[in-house]
């Protein structure tokens, strides 16, 4: 089922914009909308959310009348390893310190590719850690602790 009687990509796209608009609209209702004279903090967000819902609806309705292809392959392995990398950095930078966090982050990101072998991953992570420590920590004096409390 490669081609359908509607455009699946744009159906998802339209639905996404409607959903995003709805969430923002709901969020902006909890602050003051204001008046024409003095527009409150919620005024512009609400108008923009409505516009986003409208645009989403236009995309969605248009998609139902067109034939299109599906979204295509999605790099699930990449999503998992790549997006977790900054999160891991965030979770470990205070505990392990700069050096440890860079090493763990780089090592983790290496596994996003199926071409990377464990040994070269270790070597790359070590090299990156050494480079970053010299450049960022010693060279640019970024104010991070090199070794955190977990390592003491």
């Amino acid at each position: 089922m490669k081609n359908q009687s509607f455009d699946p990509t744009n159906v998802i796209c339209g639905a996404f914009f409607i959903l995003a608009g709805a969430i923002f609209a709901w969020q902006s209702l909890s602050v003051d909308l204001g008046s024409w004279l003095k527009i409150g903090p919620g005024g512009m967000p609400l108008v923009l959310s409505m516009l986003l819902i409208l645009l989403g609806a236009v995309i969605l309705i248009g998609a139902l009348r067109e034939v299109g292809e599906s979204v295509g392959t999605i790099a699930w392995r990449g999503i998992f390893f790549i997006t977790l990398a900054p999160i891991i950095f965030g979770l470990t930078v205070r505990g392990l310190g700069f050096v440890g966090a860079v090493f763990v982050t780089a090592l983790f990101a290496c596994f996003a590719s199926f071409k990377m072998k464990p040994l070269s991953a270790l070597a790359l992570a070590a090299a990156l850690t050494a480079f970053s420590t010299v450049v960022f920590s010693y060279g640019l004096n970024l104010p991070f602790e090199r070794f955190g409390p977990w390592l003491r």
Binding site: P86, V102, A109, A112, S113, S120
Partner: peptide
């Protein structure tokens, strides 16, 4: 070899 490098620099 590139993207682990990019990820590390991004995070820092």
């Amino acid at each position: 070899m590139l993207f682990p490098t990019i990820m590390a620099f991004c995070s820092i």
